[in-house]
């Protein structure tokens, strides 16, 4: 094949590629133009973007909710995963789209606040608004069932007696890690932080005896209930899943430490929209919010969530109810990382 032939052949290949790709590229254009004319929101599928990978806790929760949201809105809800940078990728993408209510991000707080406070995210926290809070999952300090610590005190005492010997597995780069760092710094404990990429990995490290403890979430770590015991839980009240865990405020009192809030840095799974949606289309914002919060009293949904064992954690409450709490934890987070 001569050189000219090659060029010609290559060009033909690229032209056919472009021809085949055209319908794909054109599809979103048609979708947008037809939606602008419509007032009966939602007139096309709503995108629910999960800011984490498929199969994780937030993903499962969002997919379960999506099925009910479809019924409430009377339109289909498409779940997509857009993981990356602790939720920052999904939020950035959402803010790039038009704030018309067709894109909702399922993510966690205070993780998104953290991307702003600590990671120089290219948006301000005010650019996004929490539509609704799905579940609130408190932080948990876990050790193996046969570990020689009967209480939180035992553990801290052992850690202080053997500086640099005990270890705690955390989800690195996530709020979980910030919580662990804040906790052990406040108690003036020299402990080894070992970073992992997911809750599943931290669990494997604990079960294998490679770390002495892990910081996880109440509901998410229920999977290792039989092999572990909880020493401390970061919530205002005791957990039905981990009755042995001491409540954070009480556990820290002997050390003269008061957490900024009783459930400081607990995982709040939330649905976020651009703040512009609330201003530009208040009725769409309201419709979406009502659809989600109505699940708080939906018997079918409540039965499903109770069967899963998270009946006490589900909120399905409007985001406005949590605005002050989010503000408070954001400021505390900034303060703890500043020094």
């Amino acid at each position: 094949m001569s050189f000219v032939d090659r060029i010609a052949h290559g060009t033909r290949c690229l032209v056919s590629a472009a021809l085949l790709a055209m319908p794909l590229a054109a599809a979103p254009v048609f979708a947008t133009s037809s939606a602008q004319a419509a007032d009966d929101f939602p007139s096309r599928p709503v995108n629910l973007v999960v800011s984490y990978g498929a199969g994780g806790g937030t993903d499962r929760q969002a997919r379960m909710m999506a099925g009910f949201l479809e019924k409430k809105l009377g339109s289909s809800v498409v779940v997509q995963n857009m993981p990356g940078a602790g939720g920052q990728v999904a939020i950035t993408a959402m803010l790039r789209d038009e704030a018309d209510g067709y894109t909702i991000v399922a993510t966690n707080e205070p993780d998104i606040s953290m991307t702003v406070a600590l990671r120089n995210a290219p948006y301000a926290r005010e650019d996004v608004e929490v539509l609704a809070v799905d579940i609130v999952d408190p932080r948990l300090l876990l050790v193996l069932k046969d570990a020689p610590y009967e209480s939180f005190d035992d553990f801290i005492k052992a850690a202080k007696e053997n500086p640099g010997e005990l270890s705690v597995a955390v989800n690195s780069g996530a709020v979980q890690e910030q919580f662990a760092k804040w906790l052990f710094k406040a108690l003036d404990v020299d402990i080894n932080f070992v970073g992992y990429k997911s809750g599943g990995e931290t669990t494997a490290a604990l079960l294998g005896g490679h770390v002495t403890s892990l910081v996880g979430d109440d509901f998410a770590r229920f999977d290792v209930r039989d092999q572990t015991k909880a020493l401390m839980i970061g919530s205002a009240t005791a957990s039905p899943r981990w009755p042995e865990a001491e409540v954070m405020v009480d556990a820290l009192k002997p050390y003269g430490v008061t957490p900024p809030t009783p459930d400081f840095l607990a995982r709040h799974m939330v649905y976020m929209v651009p703040s512009a949606l609330h201003e530009n289309y208040p009725e769409r914002f309201q419709k979406l919010q009502d659809a989600i919060t109505s699940l708080a009293t939906d018997p079918e949904y409540q039965k499903l969530i109770k069967d899963q064992g998270a009946g006490d954690l589900t909120k399905m409450a409007p985001g406005s109810e949590y605005r002050d709490a989010f503000q408070k934890s954001l400021e505390a987070l900034k303060a703890t990382t500043a020094n």
Partner: peptide, 26 residues
């Protein structure tokens, strides 16, 4: 153990919990 051996089995773990089953020796 309820510990995923890979990405795919992590999703399988999720499927177990969705169907009300708890992975582990139990």
């Amino acid at each position: 153990l309820g510990v995923p051996g890979s990405v795919a089995t992590a999703v399988l773990l999720g499927a177990l919990t969705i169907h009300g089953l708890r992975p582990g020796p139990a």
